[in-house]
Design a protein around this nucleic acid. Structure first.
Lengths: 264, 264, 264, 264
DNA sequence: TATGAATGAGGTTTCATTCAT
DNA sequence: TATGAATGAAACCTCATTCAT
């Protein structure tokens, strides 16, 4: 009995996994709304009723997928230890990011589900989704706050920083699984870090003037810089040719930083 | 007759607009899939059949909304003139961004429609959506390429940069219309520019070692940087080669924490 | 518009009636549980969706039938006026009964629906049903009470009398519509009145000993009868003469109200 | 083997009984249509398949319950011996009734099953039910006929009398198990007998005019009646032919009231 | 043109019953 | 025998779309 019961349990779990896997595929392909239970069971090769042995309804299956993926995503993220770091904070950040990318890239279907359909299913689901993002935002916000305190992160409206980072990550991952961006987790992570490090991490030490990117005049002074900030609010008509990379370039190891916006 | 015909035309156009406006509201509230034709006509105060006098089907109405919004969005974006700029490129960029933000914030419903449901409707619609984004991406990619060539934009995988920027923008706008981020177009633009300028635009001139964001150590060097700060408003046409290193390494010996968050 | 609107309304009402009539037939034939919406619309010659334009669901249609029938049944029943009767109470009773029988016999299908299926549909429906019967019971109970007070009705547990009367009526009507009992309302009424008048109405004056129907020996003694009214729950020997009239005459000259059935 | 076989048989029978008992409970609670096989096996604590080892299908279980209860009900009813009665016929009738009441009250669940759902299951079941009632009706009809012949039962349309009696009994029992009527078999029997004796049993001797219950006036006359009240416990074993109606008689306009119950 | 009743395809879900273990 | 997972027929209900007025 125990033996048999255990076997059954295992069998059941396997069946459920199978159904989930099929559901994931179809949801990813056709979207939640474009997927009927029939589609799922057809792919799984089981009868319609079988589906309902494992899930209360279509939504529940979808929810299971999303919950599961969110859980694993969450598992990728570790708090960044700045007190007694065994690893530099930025390294820790990078590791987080790398894990997230690796997970996402290894599960394109799950990612599709989460990014494309997870919103607008119904009120309850939206709440759940909102809760996930709220949690993520809060974590990131707090991390940024710490970062700002210790000078790792530049100042600025953290809500915006978080949103831009999260949104950017979502988009790049979505593109990546569609083959429109590097599908290698490490390469991707590197690129993202480049973006973040220049955008979120504190800029290089002063002594150098930096253009105010908000259009206001910078008061920072370096050899007499942002004088005309007001008028031009912007950028010089630089002419120098930098950036030697052509076309679709992906010059990761390109040492020449092309005219950083700010400088330092 | 002509007179009357014209009046009729106008009347017709007005009614169509009315229907679209109602549809926009409901779609934004409940999502495409959660919105029935009934919901729309109920709000519009017309009969169900009337809807079909103006739109081929439900999808067509949604498509019209999205098309329209995309058209206006596209209208916000002007090519950045780097050849004979009357305005610094960054300014032009900023202006583009500001217009997009202003438009988006002034039409939360349209934004919701585009961001929440525009995906997963059906194959044809996805194609249209993909086309829009492809166009946007291409434009941005080309812009970035020019930017890279003239040293305004740092080097890097442009696909990634574009994705991060676009994704970030989508997210921040979505948050903004939900009241979770600054809802003022200018303030928002400023914040985004800060992010972009530090993240997409060429980094500051060297002379300062900077932690490699890919985790490797870097002793960035730049020879004489912010010389032209004035003209370039702070952006050096640095040429120095930085990052000479390999591997996954993090920023081991980078003691100098670069200038605090607030930059000035 | 008004004209057309009115016509539409009428048309709609007619359609609804048609659907109800078909539903009534099928429900009566196959029972509620044996009837699918398909059965109904097939008989009505309309599409499935049409049904749902007129009724929220199958249950609602059934409910409408039952409600309607109950309403008409209720309409058959008039309070019996004993204060200033223009008609002898028994006549009034008979008239009530006759109307009920006539209605029931004229609507065999409705009767079937009510008697066969109205119970056990769901909790809410059961409540409604219970409410109807409770009302009926209360009405009858009160009527009997009055009857007892004025000596028209024998003494006894009114709950039992009511139940027996109601149950008997239900059964005889059910049988009648099935052709197993007189299907003529008047004949049926006569028979029922015979039953009731001998069973519910006060028995004739004593003078005659009568067997105890509870199986015990009767100790009653005739012309000294209602002595033990108290113990035996008997009835007063009212003497007032009521109803002295002819025609549909009720108990004209029967002044002597006799001791209860069990007498004494 | 035999031993073991016997034990097995017993075990089997016991399990079947258990299942039946559980089924009875659930059917009584939720009605046939509201009860799933799952409900039953869940209550019984066995697996679903097990149910089908003991019953062909759900209907069969229900049928078994009803059959069983009907059999026991039938067992309660003994033919009334009027030829050589050891007990007065009315006593015998009362005893029958008492047994029926006692059984019904002792098995509320069975009663519920029979009264609530026994109709409308399916054609075959309806036939069975009809057969039961036909048998009961026939028995009662014949009994009444005898009763009429010997003067125990008043004249009248026996179909109506039977229906009223059966219907009344059903209703009062249903009410009783629901707590809305005396739940004591003896008390209940007494009350029913009071009803019946005044309604079905021959009325006391005439000599008294009585209102016609069919609404018409009547000066019923009866020649010297309840002489033998003692022996017959009030019911004369009159042999005089009253009610000249034979068989299925429906003597509406029959002036001779066969010993009107109330008469007088 | 405007209306709104009618349509029916399509999806969801239940559950009685079967069957491999 | 007992089990309970699997089955799939059958019912329900919605809603986009059509069409007569």
């Amino acid at each position: 009995m125990t033996r048999r019961g255990a076997a059954r349990e295992a069998q059941k779990r396997r069946r459920r996994e199978h159904l989930l896997a099929c559901a994931r595929e179809v949801f990813a392909e056709r979207g939640y709304h474009g997927t009927s239970v029939d589609d799922i069971v057809r792919r799984a090769g089981v009868a319609r009723g079988t589906f309902y042995l494992y899930f209360a309804d279509r939504r529940a299956a979808f929810e299971a997928l999303v919950d599961d993926f969110f859980a694993r995503l969450t598992g990728c993220i570790r708090s960044i230890d700045v007190a007694h770091p065994t690893e530099p904070p930025v390294s820790q950040l990078r590791a987080n990011l790398q894990r997230v990318c690796a997970l996402a890239l290894s599960e394109p279907a799950s990612l599709q589900c989460v990014l494309r359909d997870a919103s607008g299913l119904d009120v309850e689901f939206d709440r759940k989704l909102a809760a996930f993002y709220r949690g993520l935002y809060r974590f990131l916000d707090e991390s940024l706050e710490v970062g700002q305190r210790i000078g790792l992160v530049r100042s600025g409206d953290r809500r915006v920083m978080v949103a831009l980072a999260v949104g950017g990550l979502k988009q790049i991952l979505a593109d990546a699984v569609r083959g429109e961006a590097p599908a290698d987790a490490d390469a991707l992570t590197d690129e993202i870090m480049r973006f973040l490090s220049a955008g979120l991490l504190a800029p290089p030490p002063p002594g150098v003037e930096r253009e105010r990117c908000d259009g206001s005049a910078a008061t920072t002074r370096s050899e007499g810089a942002a004088r005309h900030a007001k008028e031009t609010r912007g950028i010089a008509k630089s002419t120098g040719s930098r950036g030697s990379d052509p076309g679709e370039s992906r010059q990761p190891k390109n040492p020449r930083r092309a005219a950083g916006s700010g400088s330092s």
